[in-house]
């Protein structure tokens, strides 16, 4: 019996047609290959990245011939020797590493109360405000924001003008290490909040009530219940903040004014100022290595946190 027109609407017929076409083009027996097919673009992208790294690895073993300004044909470890012995590179590396650690700690300390209030507040308006305040900086971009800080913190900037009103001589607020760290913390805060919030959402409010009824005041509830349960979020947020600030370019360049270079700035100088591609490649590979080791150490010590994905137990 043919289905009647009323019980079988047009939209269903259209879907049937689409399904028939799909079945003709891609028979059901192929369906096992679909997930792999959808994975292809990602595989290609990562593959290209690996190819590029391979090319850089090749370059890192060639020294710059100062006579012709071309990479040498023969391989040597001279670039790596320079990277580990020259004081400039050591200064830059330790500045970035220590900086990224300080930024990570400060950012997590600031991000926690923000995301906690955002997740737990009963006021929908406050939650919306906190979310918008969080996303707004994403629309502005790193460079523009750094220039914004120049306007605020410069020697003729708003802060110094305000200080001048109360009779304080202008203070040099820019082009130093704290200025770079300040800019990085401000830049990283939204990332950390966004990584922490899901971990806090996953902690049932009843847990905190339970801790209360069992005799824990809010400090002890925080230490014994919230903090341990939020650990995956802290690890995920910490890893993201640490790797992003370790490899950041714009903020050290703009707020450091050339005096506070991070590794990325040193790499840029090698590639585009001194045109020593071999040295640039060496530094880039070392940065990849250091970043991977730091992530590896965190994984080994604390587990992968929210970055672990997969099924939880």
């Amino acid at each position: 019996m043919r289905p009647s027109r009323t019980s079988y609407p047009l939209s269903w017929r259209l879907m049937d047609a689409v399904e028939a076409v799909a079945a003709a083009v891609w028979p059901r027996s192929f369906s096992a290959a679909v997930p792999w097919l959808m994975l292809m673009p990602a595989v290609v992208l990562v593959g290209l990245l690996v190819l590029g790294l391979w090319d850089m690895a090749d370059g890192s073993f060639r020294t710059l011939d100062t006579a012709t300004f071309l990479p040498s044909d023969d391989y040597s470890l001279a670039n790596y020797d320079r990277a580990f012995t020259e004081k400039l590179f050591f200064t830059v590396a330790s500045r970035s590493l220590i900086g990224s650690l300080i930024v990570t700690v400060i950012t997590l300390v600031f991000a926690f109360p923000y995301s906690y209030v955002m997740v737990r507040t009963r006021s929908a308006a406050l939650r919306k405000f906190l979310l918008i305040a969080l996303f707004l900086p994403f629309f502005i971009g790193q460079v523009v924001r750094a220039y914004g800080w120049l306007i605020i913190l410069g020697s003729q900037g708003m802060v110094n003008e305000a200080l001048g009103l109360v009779g304080v001589a202008p203070i040099r607020l820019l082009y130093n290490y704290p200025a770079v760290l300040f800019g990085l913390v401000q830049y990283m805060l939204p990332f950390a909040v966004l990584m922490l919030a899901p971990a806090l959402t996953a902690i049932p409010e009843e847990m905190e009530s339970a801790a209360g009824s069992l005799g824990a005041n809010w400090v002890r509830t925080f230490i014994h219940v919230v903090l341990p349960l939020a650990k995956p979020g802290f690890i995920g947020a910490g890893l993201v903040v640490m790797t992003l600030s370790l490899t950041d370019f714009a903020i050290p360049a703009i707020l450091g004014g050339g005096s506070q270079d991070f590794i990325a700035n040193a790499i840029y100088d090698q590639f585009f100022r001194t045109s020593d591609q071999g040295m640039g490649a060496t530094l880039a590979l070392l940065l990849v290595a250091v970043g991977s080791i730091m992530v590896g150490v965190v994984f080994a010590l604390f587990g992968a946190g929210t970055l672990a994905m997969g099924r939880s137990k």
Binding site: A211, S213, L214
Partner: peptide, 28 residues
């Protein structure tokens, strides 16, 4: 406040602490 009242409560979703063992929960 709740933590100063002498009241034991069993919650709707139990609210047991997943990062502790059964005995640690009871000792809490």
């Amino acid at each position: 406040p709740p933590h100063k009242r002498s009241i034991g409560m069993v919650f709707q979703k139990l609210a047991l602490f997943p990062h502790m063992t059964a005995a640690e929960n009871v000792a809490f």
